[in-house]
Design a protein around this nucleic acid. Structure first.
Ligand code: MN
Ligand code: MN
Ligand code: MN
Ligand code: MN
Lengths: 234, 234
DNA sequence: TATATTTGTTAGACTTACCTAACAAATTAA
DNA sequence: TTAATTTGTTAGGTAAGTCTAACAAATATA
């Protein structure tokens, strides 16, 4: 039995990836709206509307007029493949080509669309089957299984609790450079000392030093809390 | 002084590369025609015509109505950069990811269009600044200097002469697999024993064995002849 | 040199991915 | 429960890159 490989354009792949990131990956939601997708992709809602119809035609998204959209099983599979490629390339750039964690994303945005099963399998092998990328994001395995980390943001952590930094939400270079500057990094232990009502700053201890961080920053830092329960599964 | 980086599409890059390969790289010609380019790129002449006008506008090709086309200095520079990327990626796939020489070209066709100076510089470094790709083709260096090999095809080699295989003209997978099968490979020593008038086959000795090859095959094998003069320069 | 052939150009059309402007439906607030 | 706001859709348009069909120029051949 012949299986037809439907070739998708870069653009179509990006729409599926965005939809995945706005729904499944953030776990809290099942569907995303047209405007939301437009904002995430940096295009106009009218453009998204056209594409949703096309992707529905190809049976990759579920979409009804005036309703929210979600991925079909096949659409989700493709989205995960793109994310796997993106994160493997980021890891490659970081581990093998001396890129810093704030430089990898931009180039991986291009590399994630290269079509070659062997390329990705061999890259995975070369990197020794990594489970997370330089930003702490889980890398789907070759079967498309994705580890969902039971993490929350530093902004949500309770005063007095100690946690460990596991990743970042924002992948932009300026944000990541700022994180570096503050001495924050994945695997660092962070203790929440206080929350200041007056200006909303959060006082934390990291590297044996007390620093104050903004809620905006804290919302973009992922942690797992040793004081709370923690679990993970593929 | 600001230098503007004109961003080219994949397509535009491919036209420049083709024009380079049909002219400068084969050294014998300065210019190429519309139909010739169309055949090389696998599109129709009308399409090439439109693109030539656009690339002329961008000052990357010299083109006059009903005349042959050639690259400007800037166009040539870009073509060489694309070829450098193509051949570095082929070398990477071959050396680091266990690809065979008949598998690298197809994937390199995609990878050659990734934009990142750092990526290419680091790849070059990782591979230890290779001078030729898995097919024996010279890799332009970071300055855009390209080694022109003084090679000719096996078809042109004189009877009685001994030569060394330096590369292939055809990069297609079926051809390369056939070359493998015959026991031919880059650096192998080949002695031309005879040319048979009757059926045009060329009898050679390679790996201590006598084999007969077709002129079609011989035209796609590059050699340098130890019995003739040999020189090379950047 | 006249004619046939090859080579190159033009016009008009299609697809993809995007846009703006106008409008309609759904949701939220008064 | 009407009105305001937000969200989503439609129509029509653009640019890139491709095509076909008709035509024109250049070159080769008789
Ligand atoms: Mn990324
Ligand atoms: Mn990442
Ligand atoms: Mn290419
Ligand atoms: Mn090659």
């Amino acid at each position: 039995m012949l299986t037809f490989v439907l070739m998708l354009s870069f653009t179509e792949e990006n729409y599926l990836k965005s939809l995945f990131q706005l729904t499944v990956e953030t776990a809290l939601k099942e569907e995303a709206g047209t405007n939301e997708l437009a904002a995430h992709l940096g295009v106009k809602p009218a453009t998204v509307n056209d594409m949703l119809k096309k992707l529905k035609e190809k049976k990759l998204v579920k979409y009804e007029k005036y309703g929210k959209s979600s991925l079909t099983k096949e659409g989700r599979k493709i989205a995960i493949e793109v994310i796997r490629k993106h994160r493997l390339w980021e890891t490659f750039l970081f581990e093998k080509l001396e890129f810093s964690w704030d430089e990898v994303h931009e180039v991986a945005e291009q590399l994630e669309h290269i079509q070659s099963k062997k390329l990705i399998d061999q890259l995975d092998k070369l990197l020794n089957y990594p489970v997370s990328d330089p930003h702490g994001d889980p890398i789907p395995n070759a079967k498309g299984e994705l580890l969902i980390l039971h993490q929350h943001t530093l902004a949500e952590e309770l005063v007095g609790h100690q946690c460990k930094m596991t990743g970042v939400k924002d992948n932009s270079s300026p944000f990541l450079k700022y994180v570096d500057q503050l001495g924050l990094a994945i695997t660092k232990t962070i203790k929440v000392l206080a929350r200041h009502e007056y200006d909303d700053l959060i006082e934390i201890e990291v590297n044996g030093k007390r620093i104050s961080v903004s809620p905006k920053l804290a919302e973009n830092i992922f942690v797992v809390c040793t004081a709370c329960k923690k679990k993970s599964k593929r």
